[in-house]
Computed example of a mutant assay.
Amino acid sequence: MSNRMVDPNAKSALNQMKMEIANELGINNSGGANLTSYENGKIGGDLGGLMSKQLVKMGEEELIRQYYNK
């Protein structure tokens, strides 16, 4: 599997989504660079894992939709 970017807009869209979610949760991103990864992980809690599960589910559903619409 390659780490090649499929859609060049995907990275900026994901970064924008992360910033919007952080703002909605009241997470201040300015100090994140000075914190350890463990400390940053505690800020987001289980949100990252749940978001990843949902994104994988959405991707799987889209692949199934594309397969059956050939």
Rank of each mutant, 00 (worst) to 15 (best):
residue 33 A to F: 11
residue 46 D to K: 10
residue 70 K to H: 15
residue 66 Q to T: 11
residue 23 N to G: 07
residue 14 L to E: 02
residue 32 G to T: 05
residue 20 E to R: 00
residue 27 I to Q: 00
residue 31 G to Q: 11
residue 9 N to S: 12
residue 40 N to Q: 15
residue 32 G to V: 04
residue 41 G to W: 01
residue 28 N to D: 10
residue 11 K to W: 07
residue 21 I to E: 00
residue 17 M to F: 07
residue 21 I to N: 02
residue 20 E to L: 01
residue 63 L to T: 13
residue 31 G to E: 08
residue 30 S to F: 02
residue 29 N to V: 06
residue 37 S to N: 10
residue 42 K to C: 12
residue 17 M to Y: 07
residue 66 Q to H: 09
residue 3 N to K: 03
residue 63 L to G: 09
residue 70 K to I: 15
residue 29 N to G: 00
residue 12 S to Y: 01
residue 66 Q to Y: 12
residue 28 N to S: 06
residue 42 K to F: 10
residue 58 M to D: 08
residue 59 G to I: 06
residue 31 G to V: 11
residue 22 A to C: 03
residue 58 M to P: 03
residue 33 A to H: 09
residue 2 S to D: 03
residue 34 N to I: 13
residue 12 S to D: 04
residue 55 L to T: 08
residue 68 Y to H: 15
residue 38 Y to P: 05
residue 20 E to Q: 05
residue 48 G to H: 05
residue 44 G to S: 04
residue 50 L to P: 13
residue 5 M to K: 13
residue 28 N to F: 02
residue 61 E to S: 11
residue 55 L to W: 09
residue 15 N to A: 05
residue 24 E to Y: 10
residue 61 E to L: 11
residue 55 L to Y: 06
residue 16 Q to R: 08
residue 25 L to Y: 07
residue 29 N to T: 07
residue 1 M to Q: 04
residue 50 L to R: 15
residue 42 K to L: 13
residue 21 I to T: 07
residue 70 K to E: 15
residue 15 N to C: 00
residue 23 N to M: 09
residue 16 Q to P: 10
residue 55 L to E: 04
residue 43 I to M: 12
residue 20 E to N: 04
residue 12 S to N: 03
residue 20 E to I: 03
residue 4 R to K: 08
residue 48 G to W: 04
residue 26 G to N: 05
residue 30 S to A: 10
residue 19 M to D: 04
residue 36 T to F: 00
residue 48 G to F: 00
residue 47 L to Q: 06
residue 13 A to W: 08
residue 43 I to H: 07
residue 17 M to N: 04
residue 17 M to W: 08
residue 21 I to Y: 01
residue 17 M to S: 05
residue 9 N to R: 09
residue 49 G to V: 05
residue 3 N to Y: 02
residue 38 Y to A: 08
residue 65 R to Y: 00
residue 4 R to S: 09
residue 56 V to N: 15
residue 44 G to W: 01
residue 70 K to C: 15
residue 46 D to N: 11
residue 5 M to Y: 08
residue 52 S to N: 12
residue 22 A to G: 01
residue 66 Q to R: 12
residue 10 A to Q: 02
residue 14 L to G: 01
residue 26 G to M: 07
residue 50 L to I: 14
residue 46 D to F: 05
residue 8 P to M: 11
residue 24 E to G: 08
residue 4 R to M: 05
residue 53 K to T: 14
residue 70 K to V: 15
residue 67 Y to R: 14
residue 54 Q to C: 14
residue 66 Q to V: 12
residue 61 E to G: 09
residue 27 I to K: 01
residue 59 G to L: 09
residue 2 S to V: 02
residue 29 N to Q: 05
residue 24 E to T: 09
residue 67 Y to W: 13
residue 58 M to I: 03
residue 64 I to S: 14
residue 20 E to V: 01
residue 70 K to M: 15
residue 41 G to F: 00
residue 6 V to C: 00
residue 55 L to R: 08
residue 35 L to W: 02
residue 36 T to D: 04
residue 27 I to G: 00
residue 16 Q to E: 12
residue 26 G to W: 07
residue 52 S to G: 11
residue 27 I to W: 03
residue 54 Q to K: 15
residue 39 E to A: 09
residue 30 S to N: 07
residue 63 L to Y: 10
residue 54 Q to T: 15
residue 62 E to G: 03
residue 1 M to H: 02
residue 59 G to C: 07
residue 59 G to S: 09
residue 32 G to A: 01
residue 55 L to V: 10
residue 25 L to K: 10
residue 37 S to A: 13
residue 10 A to S: 02
